[in-house]
Design a protein around this nucleic acid. Structure first.
Lengths: 205, 205
DNA sequence: CCTACCGATCGGTAGG
DNA sequence: CCTACCGATCGGTAGG
């Protein structure tokens, strides 16, 4: 229960901080143990709360998952748009997008997007639709670059299928990539470019 | 409790059938609702049993998951070896392997492999190691073909990374592929070949 | 394979 | 945000 005597412009700020802490803790736990494998008690104790207290910040466990996934997509959209705004040459844009996507997915410390990849099935139908709407915006950004590559004849498969395959290949790295195992994210981005794009022509127009 | 008066060569056969039914039902349910989202009661009632009876056939819910995953891998190994035994030309082998893998993953009716892709995290450490050992054999079969493609300069990325990416792209199709949505498994295999391999040379040696 | 059941856990809530 | 708690569910078991 909110204490009535406090000033309204102080408490909400603290609340927002605690909410953000819960979100980070939840993301970490969901990533490690899955949504169903994580209890509300786990999340609470990770930030020093008791079992019932997360429900002061979120109406349900599902709502926590939704907030985690939305935060991940928000970050992904933002950094992708930043890459695109640089207006690099086509090949470089592709490589930079790949590197950006891999960073989002593989950097320890960012658990939000992997949670989406692992646990989107745990969302109920309504929340899932909300997530899909955001994901569609992310896909659309990629699609423009894929389409340009296709027009430049650097990609032979149908653009839509190509996008799904390229993103799929990257998304699946969460299941096998281990940091500090001899392969860096940069090297992986380089390899992916080698895999999907033909050699650059020496003096190519 | 096994009835003592029955002949040992009759009952085990019926038991094996019931066990197989449980496995199919479990695979379907795990695929649809996830391991944690499926209860032993769900599995039991799917084959007309009561809640405690699956434990006559399996020692634990984990053991059911392990059996499902192992059955999936067994099928995958078998069909892959069958493709390889045909000794097709390199390009055709690749395409046939892709089609085979996609069929295993996407054909409705085969829920075993998708369960592995979704729910391998739910296996405890010991069982997970057993699964990884089988998966390594599967990967090794692919690796030989990838290596040959690399030597023939049809693939520019490092063979190991290429294998992980190609399998990842295929495995991720479980999250978006919808049968009867205008894209067949055959067409998808064709698109994947276009995406990963360069054009065949007209009179290429 | 069923009946009957247990112990534990879990998401969530009332009331302060 | 805590205390104290509930109702439901779940994996698993004893005994036949």
């Amino acid at each position: 229960m909110r204490r009535q005597g406090e000033q309204a412009n102080i408490i909400p700020e603290e609340d927002a901080n605690r909410r953000a802490e819960l979100l980070r803790a939840a993301a970490r736990l969901f990533r490690d143990k899955g949504f169903d494998g994580t209890t509300v008690r786990d999340i609470a104790s990770a930030v020093g709360m008791r079992s019932g207290s997360p429900f002061y910040h979120f109406p349900s466990k599902q709502a926590i998952l939704l907030a985690v996934v939305e935060e991940g997509l928000r970050q992904g959209l933002e950094s992708t748009q930043q890459v695109l705004s640089k207006k690099l040459p086509l090949r470089d844009t592709f490589k930079a997008l790949v590197r950006n996507h891999l960073s989002i997915i593989l950097d320890s410390g960012n658990d939000f997007i992997p949670v989406m990849l692992y646990d989107w099935r745990a969302l109920d139908e309504v929340h899932r639709q909300e997530v899909i709407a955001m994901k569609d915006r992310y896909d659309a950004l990629w699609q423009t670059v894929i389409r340009d590559l296709s027009r430049a004849e650097l990609l032979r498969a149908e653009p839509k299928v190509a996008r799904l395959m390229i993103l799929g290949a990257m998304n699946f790295t969460v299941t096998w990539f281990k940091p500090n195992a001899g392969l860096t994210i940069d090297a992986l981005a380089e390899q992916m470019t080698l895999l999907f794009l033909p050699p650059a022509k020496a003096g190519g127009r």
